[in-house]
Amino acid sequence: MINYLGKYLINFLVIVFIQVLILNNLNLGGYINPWLYLLFILILPVEIPDWMLLLIGFLTGLLMDMFLNTIGMHASATVFLAFIRPFLLRFFAPRDGYEPGSLPIPSHFGVGWFLKYVSVTVVAHHIFLFYVEVFNFDTPLLTLWKAIVSSVFTIAFIMVAQMFGATKSSRS
Protein backbone atom coordinates (compact mmCIF):
# COMPACT_ATOMS: atom_id res chain seq x y z
CA MET A 1 0.00 0.00 0.00
CA ILE A 2 2.75 2.44 1.01
CA ASN A 3 4.63 2.24 -2.30
CA TYR A 4 1.44 3.23 -4.09
CA LEU A 5 1.15 6.39 -2.03
CA GLY A 6 3.42 8.63 -4.13
CA LYS A 7 1.94 7.43 -7.40
CA TYR A 8 -1.62 7.99 -6.20
CA LEU A 9 -0.78 11.46 -4.90
CA ILE A 10 0.53 12.50 -8.32
CA ASN A 11 -2.47 10.83 -9.98
CA PHE A 12 -4.76 12.76 -7.67
CA LEU A 13 -3.17 16.16 -8.36
CA VAL A 14 -3.15 15.63 -12.14
CA ILE A 15 -6.78 14.47 -12.19
CA VAL A 16 -7.99 17.33 -9.96
CA PHE A 17 -6.14 19.93 -12.05
CA ILE A 18 -7.55 18.57 -15.32
CA GLN A 19 -11.03 18.51 -13.78
CA VAL A 20 -10.94 22.00 -12.29
CA LEU A 21 -9.00 23.89 -14.93
CA ILE A 22 -10.27 22.25 -18.11
CA LEU A 23 -13.33 20.04 -17.74
CA ASN A 24 -15.30 22.33 -15.41
CA ASN A 25 -15.08 25.01 -18.10
CA LEU A 26 -16.43 22.78 -20.87
CA ASN A 27 -20.02 23.44 -21.80
CA LEU A 28 -21.28 20.53 -23.82
CA GLY A 29 -24.91 21.17 -24.67
CA GLY A 30 -25.66 23.27 -21.59
CA TYR A 31 -25.83 20.74 -18.76
CA ILE A 32 -23.20 18.13 -19.58
CA ASN A 33 -20.08 18.22 -17.46
CA PRO A 34 -17.79 15.16 -17.52
CA TRP A 35 -16.68 14.27 -13.97
CA LEU A 36 -13.29 12.75 -14.71
CA TYR A 37 -12.21 13.01 -11.05
CA LEU A 38 -14.23 9.86 -10.26
CA LEU A 39 -11.41 7.97 -11.98
CA PHE A 40 -9.25 8.52 -8.91
CA ILE A 41 -11.68 6.67 -6.64
CA LEU A 42 -12.29 3.95 -9.22
CA ILE A 43 -8.61 2.98 -9.60
CA LEU A 44 -7.75 2.73 -5.88
CA PRO A 45 -6.38 -0.73 -4.98
CA VAL A 46 -8.91 -3.53 -4.60
CA GLU A 47 -7.76 -4.30 -1.04
CA ILE A 48 -8.00 -0.73 0.29
CA PRO A 49 -9.62 -0.69 3.76
CA ASP A 50 -13.28 0.24 3.38
CA TRP A 51 -13.17 3.11 5.90
CA MET A 52 -10.27 4.65 4.01
CA LEU A 53 -12.21 4.33 0.76
CA LEU A 54 -15.15 6.22 2.24
CA LEU A 55 -12.86 8.88 3.72
CA ILE A 56 -11.02 9.41 0.41
CA GLY A 57 -14.36 9.59 -1.39
CA PHE A 58 -15.61 12.18 1.08
CA LEU A 59 -12.50 14.36 0.89
CA THR A 60 -12.27 14.19 -2.92
CA GLY A 61 -15.91 15.19 -3.25
CA LEU A 62 -15.48 18.00 -0.75
CA LEU A 63 -12.49 19.36 -2.69
CA MET A 64 -14.60 19.42 -5.87
CA ASP A 65 -17.41 21.15 -3.98
CA MET A 66 -14.97 23.80 -2.86
CA PHE A 67 -14.22 24.73 -6.45
CA LEU A 68 -17.85 24.56 -7.54
CA ASN A 69 -19.55 26.22 -4.53
CA THR A 70 -21.76 23.19 -4.01
CA ILE A 71 -20.72 22.18 -0.49
CA GLY A 72 -21.87 18.63 0.25
CA MET A 73 -23.29 17.82 -3.19
CA HIS A 74 -20.33 16.10 -4.80
CA ALA A 75 -19.13 14.82 -1.43
CA SER A 76 -22.39 12.94 -0.87
CA ALA A 77 -22.23 11.43 -4.36
CA THR A 78 -18.59 10.35 -4.10
CA VAL A 79 -19.25 8.79 -0.67
CA PHE A 80 -22.08 6.88 -2.32
CA LEU A 81 -19.69 5.81 -5.10
CA ALA A 82 -17.13 4.66 -2.50
CA PHE A 83 -19.89 2.74 -0.70
CA ILE A 84 -21.07 0.77 -3.74
CA ARG A 85 -17.57 0.13 -5.12
CA PRO A 86 -16.72 -2.94 -2.97
CA PHE A 87 -20.06 -4.58 -3.84
CA LEU A 88 -19.56 -3.99 -7.56
CA LEU A 89 -15.96 -5.22 -7.40
CA ARG A 90 -17.26 -8.40 -5.74
CA PHE A 91 -19.89 -8.70 -8.47
CA PHE A 92 -17.33 -8.27 -11.26
CA ALA A 93 -14.69 -10.46 -9.55
CA PRO A 94 -12.77 -12.93 -11.74
CA ARG A 95 -13.64 -16.61 -11.23
CA ASP A 96 -10.80 -17.28 -8.77
CA GLY A 97 -11.06 -13.96 -6.90
CA TYR A 98 -8.67 -11.01 -6.88
CA GLU A 99 -4.94 -11.59 -6.52
CA PRO A 100 -3.27 -9.62 -3.74
CA GLY A 101 -2.07 -6.20 -4.95
CA SER A 102 -4.32 -6.00 -7.98
CA LEU A 103 -5.68 -2.67 -9.19
CA PRO A 104 -9.04 -2.27 -10.94
CA ILE A 105 -7.47 -0.93 -14.15
CA PRO A 106 -7.50 -2.16 -17.79
CA SER A 107 -3.92 -3.46 -17.77
CA HIS A 108 -4.80 -5.90 -14.96
CA PHE A 109 -8.23 -7.08 -16.02
CA GLY A 110 -8.68 -5.98 -19.64
CA VAL A 111 -10.43 -3.06 -21.32
CA GLY A 112 -13.78 -4.87 -21.58
CA TRP A 113 -13.87 -5.61 -17.86
CA PHE A 114 -12.85 -2.04 -17.03
CA LEU A 115 -15.53 -0.56 -19.30
CA LYS A 116 -18.21 -2.68 -17.59
CA TYR A 117 -16.95 -1.72 -14.13
CA VAL A 118 -16.70 2.01 -14.95
CA SER A 119 -20.07 2.15 -16.70
CA VAL A 120 -22.04 0.69 -13.80
CA THR A 121 -20.30 2.77 -11.12
CA VAL A 122 -20.45 6.03 -13.09
CA VAL A 123 -24.12 5.66 -14.02
CA ALA A 124 -25.02 4.91 -10.38
CA HIS A 125 -22.96 7.90 -9.18
CA HIS A 126 -24.45 10.29 -11.76
CA ILE A 127 -28.04 9.31 -10.99
CA PHE A 128 -27.35 9.94 -7.29
CA LEU A 129 -25.55 13.24 -8.03
CA PHE A 130 -28.22 14.66 -10.34
CA TYR A 131 -31.07 13.86 -7.96
CA VAL A 132 -29.17 15.49 -5.10
CA GLU A 133 -28.54 18.50 -7.35
CA VAL A 134 -32.22 19.11 -8.16
CA PHE A 135 -33.23 18.02 -4.63
CA ASN A 136 -36.80 17.17 -5.67
CA PHE A 137 -38.77 14.71 -7.78
CA ASP A 138 -40.70 17.28 -9.86
CA THR A 139 -39.16 16.24 -13.16
CA PRO A 140 -37.78 12.75 -12.50
CA LEU A 141 -37.43 11.74 -16.16
CA LEU A 142 -35.60 14.92 -17.20
CA THR A 143 -33.16 14.48 -14.31
CA LEU A 144 -32.61 10.82 -15.22
CA TRP A 145 -32.00 11.80 -18.84
CA LYS A 146 -29.45 14.44 -17.84
CA ALA A 147 -27.71 11.89 -15.57
CA ILE A 148 -27.51 9.25 -18.32
CA VAL A 149 -26.25 11.68 -20.99
CA SER A 150 -23.61 13.07 -18.64
CA SER A 151 -22.55 9.53 -17.67
CA VAL A 152 -21.79 8.73 -21.32
CA PHE A 153 -19.39 11.68 -21.46
CA THR A 154 -17.78 10.88 -18.11
CA ILE A 155 -17.25 7.24 -19.15
CA ALA A 156 -15.74 8.35 -22.46
CA PHE A 157 -13.34 10.75 -20.72
CA ILE A 158 -12.34 8.11 -18.15
CA MET A 159 -11.64 5.54 -20.88
CA VAL A 160 -9.51 8.03 -22.84
CA ALA A 161 -7.63 9.09 -19.69
CA GLN A 162 -6.93 5.43 -18.85
CA MET A 163 -5.56 4.83 -22.36
CA PHE A 164 -3.02 7.61 -21.81
CA GLY A 165 -2.10 6.32 -18.37
CA ALA A 166 -2.12 2.61 -19.26
CA THR A 167 1.49 2.29 -20.45
CA LYS A 168 2.85 3.72 -17.19
CA SER A 169 0.87 1.58 -14.77
CA SER A 170 1.73 -1.92 -15.96
CA ARG A 171 1.61 -4.75 -13.44
CA SER A 172 4.62 -4.65 -11.15
Binding site: L54, G57, F58, F67, I71, G72, S76, V79, A82, V132
Partner: peptide, 27 residues
Protein backbone atom coordinates in the same frame (compact mmCIF):
# COMPACT_ATOMS: atom_id res chain seq x y z
CA UNK B 1 -19.79 4.82 8.35
CA UNK B 2 -21.42 5.41 4.96
CA UNK B 3 -24.58 6.71 6.66
CA UNK B 4 -22.51 8.96 8.92
CA UNK B 5 -20.68 10.52 5.95
CA UNK B 6 -23.94 11.02 4.06
CA UNK B 7 -25.54 12.71 7.07
CA UNK B 8 -22.55 15.09 7.29
CA UNK B 9 -22.77 15.81 3.54
CA UNK B 10 -26.48 16.51 3.58
CA UNK B 11 -26.16 18.64 6.68
CA UNK B 12 -23.58 20.77 4.89
CA UNK B 13 -25.64 20.83 1.71
CA UNK B 14 -28.76 22.04 3.48
CA UNK B 15 -27.17 24.46 5.92
CA UNK B 16 -25.00 26.02 3.25
CA UNK B 17 -27.85 26.56 0.84
CA UNK B 18 -30.42 27.84 3.27
CA UNK B 19 -28.53 30.15 5.58
CA UNK B 20 -26.26 32.87 4.33
CA UNK B 21 -23.54 31.57 6.55
CA UNK B 22 -19.96 32.47 5.98
CA UNK B 23 -17.87 29.45 5.29
CA UNK B 24 -14.36 29.23 4.03
CA UNK B 25 -15.26 26.27 1.86
CA UNK B 26 -16.21 28.21 -1.24
CA UNK B 27 -14.36 29.49 -4.24
Amino acid sequence: LFLLFEVVCFYMLVSYNHHHRETFLNS
